[in-house]
Amino acid sequence: MTIENVLLVSAVLFAIGAYGVVSRSSLITVIMSLELMFNGVVIAAVAFSRFTPSAALLSGDPLTGEAIRSALTGHAFAIFIISVAAGEAALAFALVFAMYRAGESIEITDASQMKN
């Protein structure tokens, strides 16, 4: 498995998410699609972490703190993205409830009160 394969998966996931966000009308599906976009990024971050710096690590040179930090940054990045996305999801569902209570609908096509 090469880094290209993994990056391709990540890009496809990101694109599916982006398509879902613009094409779906239910707010819940939009939020799910957003999560898909974030997961695409997480996969890319971890893939870069796993593949790119490993050349430096495996070259036989003495391990420097810098090389290890560089390799671990991607994992840290992924963890931060996941935890912030959890917070975002909580807020998103608060919005879903508020929207339902205000208008008995969670279709974003109904959210068009304001016009030019």
Binding site: A18, L34, A44
Partner: peptide, 23 residues
């Protein structure tokens, strides 16, 4: 709520795009 939802969805999309660039 409509204003909040629009801001949230577009803000999240822009964050995802930004993160992809960062990655």
């Amino acid at each position: 709520v409509e204003a909040g939802t629009k801001f949230f969805v577009l803000s999240a999309i822009s964050s995802a795009i930004l993160l992809y660039g960062f990655a």
